[in-house]
C-alpha cells in the first residue's frame, strides 16, 4: 500500500463527503444569505476534494483521475471521517459539525503548508485561506445559536452531544501516518489536539454549551468502516457514473 495515496484519499474524502452534505442544503437554507454561504462552503470543499483526489491518482500511478476516485470506489474504500457523513439534521447541527471539523482543518492546514511535498503544501496554502473563513463562519453561528434563545440553545447542546463522540477521530493516527510524518510530508495530528481543545472549548464556552461527560470515541472511517449513511450518500453521488459507465459528461 502506498501511504501517501492512502493519506490523500483521507483528505480528499473528508472534503468530498462534507461538500456533498452541505450541497444538500442548496435551496433549503434558513435564510437566503446562509443558502449562499453553505453553497460556498460546499464549492470550496468540492474544489479541495478535486485537488487531493487528482494528486492521489497521480501518486497511485494507475491512470485513475479525480472523477474515477470520487465516483467509482466502493464504500469500504472511502476513508473519510465518520463526522463528515453525519446527516445535516437542522441548520444548528450542520454548523456544529462544520465547526468541529473546521477547527481541526485550520490547525492541520497551517502545518501542512510546511510539507516537504510541494504539491501538498500548495493545496494546503489555498485550502487554508478558505478554511479560515469557514471556521469564522461556523464559530459565529455556534456562539449565536448556543447563546440565542432557549430553543436554539437546546438544539445546539443536543447537536454537540450527538457529534462529540466523532471528534476523537479527527486525531486518529496509524501506520499510514508514521512514515509520512517522519519524512515531513504531513504533520502529526495528535500534536494539534491540544490546540484544538483550547480553540473548541473557548468557542463552546462563549456559546454557553457544555462538553458531554460521556467521552466514548467512535472511530472507523479512516479504515473504511462507515456508518449506514455513507451508502446512501454514494448511491446519489455515484448514480450517473454507475448508470452510464464510461461516458463523458
Amino acid at each position: 500500500m502506498n501511504a501517501l495515496f492512502e493519506y490523500l484519499l483521507r483528505l480528499g474524502d473528508d472534503s468530498l463527503i462534507l461538500g456533498h452534505r452541505l450541497s444538500e442544503w442548496c435551496g433549503h437554507g434558513p435564510i437566503l444569505e446562509e443558502d449562499i454561504a453553505m453553497t460556498n462552503l460546499s464549492l470550496d470543499l468540492i474544489g479541495q476534494a478535486t485537488s487531493f483526489l487528482k494528486y492521489a491518482g497521480e501518486v497511485e500511478g494507475k491512470s485513475r483521475n479525480e472523477d474515477d476516485l470520487a465516483f467509482l470506489r466502493f464504500e469500504r474504500e472511502y476513508k473519510n471521517l465518520l463526522l463528515v457523513e453525519r446527516p445535516n439534521q437542522n441548520f444548528g447541527a450542520t454548523m456544529m459539525r462544520q465547526f468541529l471539523f473546521d477547527a481541526y482543518r485550520k490547525l492541520f492546514f497551517e502545518r501542512l503548508v510546511h510539507s516537504t511535498d510541494s504539491q501538498l503544501s500548495a493545496i494546503a496554502a489555498k485550502s487554508l485561506k478558505e478554511t479560515k473563513y469557514h471556521l469564522k463562519h461556523s464559530s459565529e453561528w455556534v456562539i449565536r445559536l448556543g447563546d440565542g434563545t432557549e430553543e436554539s440553545h437546546e438544539k445546539m447542546q443536543s447537536a454537540l452531544d450527538d457529534l462529540w463522540k466523532y471528534s476523537a477521530e479527527l486525531f486518529y493516527q496509524d501506520d499510514v501516518d508514521e512514515d509520512l510524518i517522519e519524512n515531513g510530508i504531513i504533520p502529526a495530528v495528535d500534536a494539534i489536539k491540544g490546540e484544538w481543545d483550547v480553540l473548541v472549548r473557548n468557542v463552546l464556552e462563549q456559546a454557553t454549551l457544555i462538553i458531554p461527560s460521556n467521552n466514548w470515541e467512535q472511530v472507523g472511517g479512516r479504515k473504511g468502516i462507515h456508518s449506514e449513511h455513507l451508502g446512501y450518500i454514494l448511491a446519489e453521488l455515484q448514480y450517473m457514473q454507475r448508470a452510464y459507465p464510461g461516458m463523458k459528461w
Partner: peptide, 26 residues
C-alpha cells in the same frame, strides 16, 4: 441534480450557478 452531478467539474459549476441565482434573488 447537485448531489447527482456526473463529475466533479459539473458539480462545481452547477453549485456555482445555483448560488448565483440565490444572489440574484437577494
Amino acid at each position: 441534480w447537485i448531489t447527482r452531478a456526473p463529475n466533479l467539474r459539473r458539480k462545481a459549476v452547477l453549485l456555482a450557478k445555483v448560488q448565483d441565482e440565490a444572489g440574484h434573488g437577494l
